[in-house]
Every structure is written in structure tokens, then in C-alpha cells.
């Protein structure tokens, strides 16, 4: 049985009989991916990412009957998570005071503090998250879904309810910004090669 069918079967059980075990199975299956994605979206703020993930699953549970199997369950979750994130950043926009210069220096210092030969995978994830934090929320989500989750442009359009042209623009602009922010990682790669 395919992954989508299994998810759908679990969803059906939750809708039909409010089966908590089925919902728990769905959460256990998707929590890691969703929490990681939200960490990438929130500058690796683990507490905030977990709060948003909790809220996402809560909303998913409350509106489980509206899930249509024409999209992957994970795509549906990302759509809810994106809306949660939009709400959060709209409300907390005044708190977003970190400047680009501070982010560049934070990434550079995290690189210097690592041992010179081998940079840990963990620092890559965190530096990527910090750099992504400088992108507008919509651009950040598009970049993550496209480059990390490798979703198609059409899937991203559906999840975020934005036109195809906007998706392409977000990818081009996001890559350009990340290129500057992650220059230290790139120069390291060139040194290695």
C-alpha cells in the first residue's frame, strides 16, 4: 500500500470514529519532517518551531474532515503550517529586528568556532536556517519546499495558493539572497575542491 493511501486510511479512521491512535500514528509519521521544516523557517528556533508544529497538528485534527486525498497529507500539513507561520510573523513582525549584517557575522562566527577541518552537519542546518530567516516568509517557504523538500513548482503553487510566476520569482530572488548570506559555506566548498 502506498504512503498516501496509508495516510488516507488513517485520516478516514480519525474522521469516522475519532480514532486517537490513528491520529497519533499520523503525528509520529510526520512530526520529524514538519518540525525540521519549521526550524528551517524560524531561524532554528526549536521552541517556536515545536509550538507551531503543535498548532499545525491541532488545526489539522480539527479540520481533518476537509482533507481531500487528491494531495499528499504532508502537503496539506505544510499548507496549514504555512498559514500558522504567516499568522505568527504578522503578529510578531515588530520583534523581527535581526539585520542582515548580524546574520552574516553570526554565520561566519559559527564557522570559525567549529574545528577548522570538519564542519558539522548540525551547523549547516542551523546556518541555513539563520540565512533563510532573512528572506520574506513567503520566499523562505518557497525556497524550502523547492530546494529542500524538492516539491514541484505546481505543488508549491497548490500548497501556498500563489501563482506559478510568483513561485519562480521567489526561487530566483531567494537564491540570490542566500548566495550572499552563505558565502562562507561556498568559499569553504571551493577551498575543498
Amino acid at each position: 500500500m502506498s504512503d498516501i493511501a496509508t495516510d488516507k486510511a488513517l485520516v478516514d479512521r480519525v474522521v469516522a470514529s475519532d480514532c486517537r491512535d490513528s491520529f497519533s500514528a499520523l503525528v509520529e509519521r510526520h512530526q520529524s519532517d514538519l518540525r525540521y521544516s519549521l526550524r528551517q523557517m524560524t531561524g532554528w528556533d526549536e521552541a517556536l518551531a515545536d509550538d507551531l508544529a503543535q498548532e499545525t497538528f491541532m488545526r489539522a485534527y480539527q479540520s481533518m474532515a476537509s482533507y481531500k486525498a487528491d494531495a499528499k497529507f504532508s502537503s496539506w500539513l505544510y499548507r496549514i503550517a504555512y498559514n500558522q507561520m504567516i499568522s505568527h510573523y504578522r503578529l510578531a513582525r515588530n520583534n523581527e529586528i535581526t539585520g542582515i549584517d548580524e546574520t552574516v557575522s553570526a554565520i561566519a562566527s559559527s564557522r570559525e568556532s567549529d574545528s577548522s577541518a570538519a564542519f558539522t552537519d548540525q551547523s549547516l542546518h542551523q546556518d541555513l536556517a539563520r540565512a533563510m530567516q532573512q528572506l520574506p516568509t513567503q520566499q523562505r517557504m518557497v525556497i524550502h519546499l523547492c530546494l529542500h523538500r524538492q516539491l514541484t513548482h505546481q505543488e508549491i503553487c497548490t500548497i501556498m495558493e500563489i501563482p506559478l510566476g510568483t513561485v519562480k520569482t521567489c526561487i530566483n530572488r531567494g537564491k540570490a539572497t542566500l548566495r550572499d548570506l552563505l558565502a562562507s559555506w561556498q568559499s569553504e566548498n571551493e577551498d575543498v575542491t
Binding site: 525540521y36 552537519d121 542546518h125 530546494l147 529542500h148 548566495r179
Partner: peptide
Amino acid sequence: NVTDIDNLFAQARSTEPYLN
């Protein structure tokens, strides 16, 4: 440079931790 960004994401994808 564009490929570098893609490579960084590919590296992150391949080393994505499973969050307990």
C-alpha cells in the same frame, strides 16, 4: 554559485536529522 546553493541544500537534505 547557483549550483552551490543547490549543493548546500542537497547536503542538508541528505544529512537531515530525524527528530525524536
